[in-house]
Structure formats: structure tokens, C-alpha cells
Deep mutational scan, measured.
Amino acid sequence: MQRVNMIMAESPGLITICLLGYLLSAECTVFLDHENANKILNRPKRYNSGKLEEFVQGNLERECMEEKCSFEEAREVFENTERTTEFWKQYVDGDQCESNPCLNGGSCKDDINSYECWCPFGFEGKNCELDVTCNIKNGRCEQFCKNSADNKVVCSCTEGYRLAENQKSCEPAVPFPCGRVSVSQTSKLTRAETVFPDVDYVNSTEAETILDNITQSTQSFNDFTRVVGGEDAKPGQFPWQVVLNGKVDAFCGGSIVNEKWIVTAAHCVETGVKITVVAGEHNIEETEHTEQKRNVIRIIPHHNYNAAINKYNHDIALLELDEPLVLNSYVTPICIADKEYTNIFLKFGSGYVSGWGRVFHKGRSALVLQYLRVPLVDRATCLRSTKFTIYNNMFCAGFHEGGRDSCQGDSGGPHVTEVEGTSFLTGIISWGEECAMKGKYGIYTKVSRYVNWIKEKTKLT
């Protein structure tokens, strides 16, 4: 034993070699072989497995989906700052455009905790909710729209109204504003409101030439003092309507412009014939205590009207009353817009006519005020429907199939267009061939041609 100890002390290297040989010859039971080890760690190889990531292109799944990435790591994937920024906006807080917040056709661009709407022409605001041009839906104005110097929408209202708090709607500024039905039992019968379409306001006024200088022999019209197929109006439903009495009662109609003036057809009036105007009328054979009678003290036909040349060209006249009318729910003026808007309103496509005229061709006159909704007829169809001249200051309205029309005794009465609950004068009943005849239409004086003249002559002093 002493000898062994001496050998170990003198030859430590020998001992180490012996131990190493023993270990190498022993069977290893701690580690699995290569094949079995792979069965336990069965993990798919990654895209760049075996390579240094710093030297390969980034992978979106590896960089940002398996674990949260930084902007720089995302930049490695896209290799483009702009594309990385677009991805980053949604990656950080989701897609803010998912709810489609942009209105009126706006395009949404996502941002971090926010979004941006790219608005089409005519709109602005956070969600493109603000109209900035009158060309689109009248700028959301209830009545009139004008573009300011910086191309912003400025709404306005006709006389007797003021802008509401929203700067879009119009509200009454006087007790009985024009064009409004205020009798409670008839307010439910107000005709369907007309909503502004998209309009090209630059070209809204037709490029028409008034044929002022045409000389033409007097034409022989049949029954051209021209509501057939209409309905009984309720008291106060058309408070701007008046009836004219002269040699015979209810020979023509008219509309209240203001307390002192009536507008009617020029062919209705004769110099030297006494005319009485009755406002607030409903049943011409009954006294309903809503009527107001006034005498006409002055007749002003349009300066281009000449019955000797043509009885229905420039067929418009103004009547001055001896005493002002007292405005109330049964006696209310009709609204008159400017030339541009009167023309736009007419193009809405349908209007209402009213009167006490004959209820059928050569038949009896109506006792109760009649009204009828009539569609506008395109000019080409209008011209083809008659052998008589249709001037540019006239328009056609009615039904091709016949059966409904204005008729004798309705002449001078109103053709009105309702705009968001307020009625505007767009025409004056003038003439036609018979009444409600198939293929024939009622012919009306186009008020847009005469609004400046009306307003100039009827100013209240």
C-alpha cells in the first residue's frame, strides 16, 4: 500500500490518463441519441435557420407576430419608411378606419389613436360632414345658397324668414311668412316636400332668348283662358290664391305678392273693366268669414305684352289694390325667389296649380277651390304637342294621358313649387288646347323671366 501511494504521488498524470480511459469505455446513459432527441424537440425550422439574422431580410411573422416588435424591426421587413409607417399605425392600436367614419364618399386613412378623412370636392370637416359648395344638395341650405369668396357655403332665406341657429334652416321672422300653410287642420295635408338634388348652379339658368321682337298675326285659340281631375282644397291650404270678379264672377285667378299687390295673367284683364279681388276665398257660393274683398285701382301688364300681336306672350300683369290686405292664416303671400332659384325650383319637376275653373272641358265651374299636382314636361315634348308657338318664356306641365289639367277660369292662378315646406311661385296658368285632352298640356308663363320686374313694381313704400 505504501508503494502504491508513492507511485500516485510521483505520477499524477498517469492516474488522470487511467481515469479518462475508464470513462470513455463506459456506456453513456444520461444523453439520448440524435434521433430520439429530435422526437422530443420537434420544432419547425425557421426561415433563416442556421444563418445569422443580421444578414437576412426581415420576416413579418418572425419579427412582429411571434413577439412584439419595434418600429426598427418592422422597418427591416418593409425596407421602406412609408410602408412601415402605414403598417405601424394599425399594428400599434388597430384600424381606426374600420367603422368607416368618413361621410359623403370620403376616404379614410388610419393613424395612431386617430384617423384622417380625405374629402371629395365640396366637403370638409373631420368626417367630411361639412358642405362647402352650393353645387351639392344646395349646400344643405333649406332655401338659398351662395358661395363666399373663400368658396364656403353661405345660406340665406327669402323675405319674412331668418336663418336658424344651425345656419342652414329657415324659420319665420314674421307672423305670416310667405308660402307657408298655417291653418292647423290643413298642415297635415301639406304636399310632399321637395329635397334639393345635386345641381350645376353655374349652368342652372337656361341660355334662352326671349323672342321679344317676333311679330306674329293673332292666333285663334280655343278655350285658351284655361282644375280638371283635381281635388277639393281645404280652407287655408292655398292662402296665396285669390279669385278675380268682373263682368262675371271667378273669371280668373291670381296670387298675393304682398298686402297691396296681386300677380295674374295679362290676358285676364281689360282696361276700363272694374275688377274686384277676393282673398281668403274657399267656396265661392258661401260666406265663410275668411274672405277679404278689395278693388283694383291700377293694372300693370308687362311692358312687352301686346294682345294685338299675341294674347299669351309675356302673359303676366300686376294688380294694385285700393287697401292693403290683412295677412292671416287664410290670406298669405306666395314666396318669389330670384331668377336663378325660381328656375331651379321649376326644374324640380312638379308643381301645384289651383283655381275655381271648370271641372271638365266646357263644363261647370268649381264651387270649392280645386288643386292638382302636375309634372313638368320637357321642352321637346311640349313643342311636338301643339302647332302653336311655345315661346321661351312659357313652359308645359300636365299629363300625356289627359284627364287632369287646369281649365277655363283658372287662368292667372299660381303654379307653385314647394321647397322644404315653403311654396314659391314658378308659373302662372296661361293657356292650353281644350282641357285635359290626351297628348295636350297646360301652358304656363315662366315666372323666372319676370321676377325682377315683379319685385321692382310691387315694392311697398
Rank of each mutant, 00 (worst) to 15 (best):
Q2M: 12
R3P: 10
S11P: 08
S11E: 04
P12R: 11
L14S: 04
I17N: 01
L19F: 12
A37P: 12
K39Q: 09
N42M: 09
Y47G: 15
S49C: 04
S49I: 09
G50P: 11
E54N: 06
F55R: 15
V56M: 07
E61Y: 06
E67Q: 04
K68I: 08
K68H: 10
E73H: 09
R75D: 15
R83T: 13
T85L: 09
E86S: 15
Y91W: 04
Y91K: 15
V92Y: 05
D93Y: 11
C102P: 01
G105Y: 07
G105W: 04
S107Q: 10
S107E: 09
K109L: 09
D110Q: 15
D111G: 14
C117P: 02
G125Q: 02
N127A: 06
C128L: 02
E129M: 04
D131P: 11
I136F: 13
C141L: 00
E142R: 04
E142Q: 12
A149P: 09
V153E: 06
V154A: 13
V154G: 06
C157W: 01
E159S: 09
E159Q: 07
Y161E: 00
R162G: 05
N166S: 04
K168H: 12
K168M: 11
C170P: 00
C170I: 01
V174W: 05
P175L: 09
G179W: 00
V183N: 11
S184H: 11
Q185R: 10
K188P: 14
T190A: 11
R191H: 11
R191E: 13
V195H: 10
F196R: 09
P197R: 09
S204W: 07
E208S: 12
D212S: 07
E231A: 07
D232H: 13
F238N: 03
Q241Y: 15
V242R: 00
V242G: 01
V243Y: 14
N245E: 05
K247Q: 06
K247V: 08
N258R: 02
E259H: 05
I262C: 03
C268Q: 02
K274I: 04
G280Y: 02
T290N: 10
E291D: 04
N295L: 02
I300N: 02
P301D: 03
P301A: 10
I309T: 07
N313Q: 11
L318T: 01
L319Q: 00
L319P: 01
E320S: 02
L321R: 00
D322R: 00
P324Q: 04
V326A: 12
S329L: 04
V331A: 07
P333Q: 04
I334Q: 00
C335Y: 02
I336W: 00
I336Y: 02
D338H: 06
Y341D: 10
K347H: 10
G349Q: 06
Y352N: 08
S354T: 14
S354I: 13
G357Y: 15
G357N: 05
R358I: 06
R358T: 14
V359W: 11
G363E: 13
S365E: 15
A366W: 10
L367N: 12
Y371M: 11
S385T: 13
K387V: 06
I390K: 08
M394D: 01
G398W: 03
G403N: 13
C407M: 07
G412T: 14
T417A: 05
T417Y: 02
E418C: 06
S423N: 13
F424S: 01
T426A: 02
I428M: 06
W431I: 13
C435G: 05
M437Q: 14
G439H: 07
Y441K: 03
I443D: 01
T445Y: 05
S448L: 02
S448I: 02
W453R: 01
L460P: 13
